[in-house]
Design a binder for these strands. Structure first.
Lengths: 95, 95
DNA sequence: TTGACAGGCAAGTAGTGGCTTGCCTATCGT
DNA sequence: ACGATAGGCAAGCCACTACTTGCCTGTCAA
């Protein structure tokens, strides 16, 4: 299991998560197309593929293979560990 | 305002947050000592200082100067943005 | 006022990460 | 069977980042 925080550190990976949040179960090429279209993000298919690998390693996405297609599904459960570690207190600001 | 995710990406910075969660309002030297003692982490005072700067830039800690001391306070409010962006759904796992 | 203490400001270095390029495998349609 | 499609593997490059070293500033106690 990879590092969830490191996976979230990259802006492109966060955008990928956004894409999957909006439309779950996309394939690699679909994600590539969507990133290029309404995110103006231009990167190689390999780039996206590597990002997906990192996200899967972190447990933020799960995959399902079907024939020559590989579908990617968002899984936000690892994020819960963040709040267990540092509970959110509304206090903030120095008094 | 810096990147919250990038700030969380480094393990040392997360340990620093843990320290502040356990004992809030510590000074730079105190944090250095605690990291060295019960975290077995050996790094220069500068290293810690730079980490604190990143965390402050990300809004995860606030500082209060008093004389020659500078106290550091944990602020977890920026973390809320994570959950607003990707709500945690207990579903998980591919069916 | 002098020295000890708390912290800041660089500049330099080794390592990591994101991205590309090039080539290879597997599955589907015709 | 053959080409097109969907994806994987591996090496190489560039940029960033964590960390150190060295020096400098400001504050307190004696």
């Amino acid at each position: 299991m990879g590092d969830v925080f490191k996976a979230l550190a990259d802006p492109t990976r966060r955008t990928i998560l956004d894409e999957l949040a909006e439309r779950d179960g996309q394939t690699l090429f679909e994600i590539c197309a969507r990133l290029a279209n309404h995110d103006q993000l231009s990167l190689t298919r390999q780039g996206v593929s590597q990002h997906l690998a990192v996200l899967e390693e972190a447990g933020l996405i799960t995959t399902r293979k079907e024939g020559r297609y590989k579908f990617h599904y968002l899984d936000t459960t690892p994020l819960a560990a963040i709040f267990e570690r540092w509970p959110i207190t509304g206090k903030g600001q120095t008094p």
